Amino acid sequence: MTDNHADERPVYQAACHCGTVRFSLRLTDGLRTVRRCNCSYCRMRGAVAVSANLSDLTVTQGRDALTLYQFNTGEAKHYFCSRCGIYTFHQRRSSPDQYGINVACIEGMSPFDFDKVPVSEGRVHPKDRPGGASNVAGWILYQANPEAGGD
């Protein structure tokens, strides 16, 4: 039996800052998965992320330029461009069948497109918490200054 239902989700193009690493993706649930995390690593990285299934991300250029970083349990796999240093995506520890994608890498998107971004409580990872529940630790708010002008 064949599946006659085409995937209606949009395909996004993404790249690191220097353009060496390029990838395409479909989001699992649109922009509804937007989040930050307050674990020791994410606090320093500072990226806003959205989710894509592993099968919905394809590196189209620069796979050999990706650098892998793992820490603590070694389960999460964080990928960076080895040339410009930008975090592109990571295989999630809490959902190993998904990538967290750096919103800033997605063409036409910015972390500042979101007025309110939930911050996941990552200081105690959901996998290390009784019941494995995810908690919101707080929110990051952004309000543009109308007097600031452009870039």
Rank of each mutant, 00 (worst) to 15 (best):
T2Y: 01
N4E: 04
N4R: 13
A6L: 12
D7H: 05
R9M: 09
R9V: 04
P10T: 10
V11C: 07
V11Q: 10
V11K: 12
Y12M: 04
Q13E: 10
A14I: 09
H17V: 04
C18I: 06
T20F: 01
T20R: 13
R22E: 13
R22M: 09
F23T: 15
S24Y: 01
S24M: 05
L25H: 06
L27H: 11
T28V: 12
G30K: 06
R32K: 15
T33G: 05
V34E: 07
R35F: 04
R35W: 00
C39G: 12
C39D: 04
Y41S: 12
Y41I: 15
R43P: 00
R45H: 08
A47P: 00
A49R: 05
A49N: 12
V50A: 10
V50F: 03
V50N: 11
N53L: 08
N53W: 02
N53S: 09
S55I: 08
D56F: 04
T58S: 12
T58D: 09
T58Y: 00
T60A: 07
Q61L: 10
G62W: 01
G62L: 08
G62T: 05
D64A: 14
D64G: 07
D64T: 08
L66M: 11
T67L: 09
L68M: 13
L68D: 04
Y69R: 14
Y69V: 15
Q70L: 02
Q70N: 11
F71A: 14
F71D: 14
N72C: 07
N72V: 07
T73P: 02
G74F: 00
E75S: 09
H78K: 11
H78Y: 08
Y79T: 14
R83P: 00
R83V: 14
C84Q: 13
G85I: 11
I86F: 02
Y87P: 06
Y87K: 14
T88E: 06
Q91V: 14
Q91R: 15
R92G: 03
Q98Y: 04
Q98I: 02
Y99P: 06
I101K: 06
A104Y: 00
E107V: 06
G108T: 10
S110I: 11
P111C: 05
F112M: 14
D113H: 13
D113I: 06
D115H: 06
K116M: 05
K116S: 11
V119G: 03
E121M: 09
R123A: 07
R123F: 03
R123S: 11
R123H: 04
V124Y: 00
P126I: 08
K127I: 14
D128L: 04
R129C: 03
R129S: 10
R129H: 05
P130R: 13
G131D: 08
G132C: 05
G132R: 11
A133T: 12
V136K: 13
G138F: 00
W139Y: 15
I140P: 01
L141G: 05
Y142L: 06
Q143D: 09
Q143W: 00
Q143V: 05
N145A: 03
N145F: 03
E147W: 00
G149M: 03
G149C: 06
D151Y: 02
